[in-house]
Design a protein around this nucleic acid. Structure first.
Ligand SMILES: [Mn+2]
Ligand SMILES: [Mn+2]
Ligand SMILES: [Zn+2]
Ligand SMILES: [Zn+2]
Lengths: 164, 164
DNA sequence: TCGTTATTGAGACTGATTCTCAATAGAGAC
DNA sequence: GTCTCTATTGAGAATCAGTCTCAATAACGA
């Protein structure tokens, strides 16, 4: 089976800390490692619900566990909820997020990673995780806006504009 | 008065968009430009409440306005709420956040900023804002933990440890 | 000064996440 | 396999930051 190594890591992490290997934990592990890309807690909950009973609380609790043992990354890419993705060691990457269509593009920059480590070191910081999110307008939305040419953008302004 | 330039920018932004310059808006502007560092909406609300009546909704609405016109930056540095800080143009900076004591250290890296612009360009992204947050253990908390040497860290584990 | 309409205040509402606690079930000992 | 201990679960309540509603107020151009 795929993800054998990660599964080992998970189970041994749980046992090493006096925890128990439960079907709920394994099911969540399988779900998040079968998905690919970013997914929120509720979608994981509903996906698992398809074939077994599980509670939301259990999903949240065990996502925390997966994050703690370094197999899953939790980030706020949108405004509201956290998104989760499983981690491939040595494949650190960051995100471009379009503020119009919410699409996420991943990129990898060893140069930025190195600079980050350097900065943390210079400040006596022991870095555990990082988030680099660049939000803006993606190429698709830029051209759409150009064509439509309908004012400032999709984002509702904080000022109640006169346009009805 | 200080912040004259920024105040100009704010008022003209508001008027240009058919908005009105209200005492609540000016008071919030003054508050966030008098503060220095990161502050949450509730603290701004309470600070303004000291000497004038204002509602929470008004604080939130007008913070959004200040963010929109580029005078204020809103970021999630902790887990829960947004933190706001006024922006000094051309002084882009990023953050190291200690996950034990929540202290925030700012740093500036023109090299990282340049790389970010380069990456956005390479993906046809028009970048509007960015967040780079490195979270870890600050030098103070590292030495404390070393002295205490009491297990994994302050962070409660998702596993109910046997220690009472 | 007047009229239009953007803004405000109070409180209801939302929604993601966390908490509570009784019932359940891993897993080590025998 | 059975027993025991206690970590984990499920269901729903609670939390909490932030957003929305709508009637009353007040900018500001005419
Ligand atoms: Mn990703
Ligand atoms: Mn800052
Ligand atoms: Zn887009
Ligand atoms: Zn610290």
């Amino acid at each position: 089976m795929a993800n054998q190594v990660e599964r080992e890591i998970f189970e041994s992490y749980v046992r090493r800390n006096g925890g128990r290997v439960t079907p709920e934990r394994l099911r969540l592990f399988d779900e998040i490692f079968s998905q690919h890309g970013h997914i929120d807690a509720d979608r994981l909950y509903r996906a698992i619900r398809q074939d077994r009973k599980i509670s939301r609380a259990t999903v949240y609790r065990n996502l925390e566990l997966l994050v703690d043992c370094g197999l899953v990354r939790r980030q706020r890419l949108g405004q509201r909820r956290y998104l989760y993705e499983h981690v491939h060691p040595g494949q650190a990457h960051d995100h471009l997020v379009c503020r119009v269509c919410d699409r996420v593009v991943e990129f990898m920059s060893p140069a930025i990673s190195a600079l980050q480590r350097e900065i943390a070191r210079a400040h006596g910081f022991d870095p555990a995780e990082h988030t680099l999110k660049i939000s803006g307008i993606c190429v698709g939305c830029a051209s759409e806006t150009e064509v439509a040419a309908t004012g400032p953008s999709h984002r509702r302004s904080a000022l109640r504009s006169t346009l009805s």
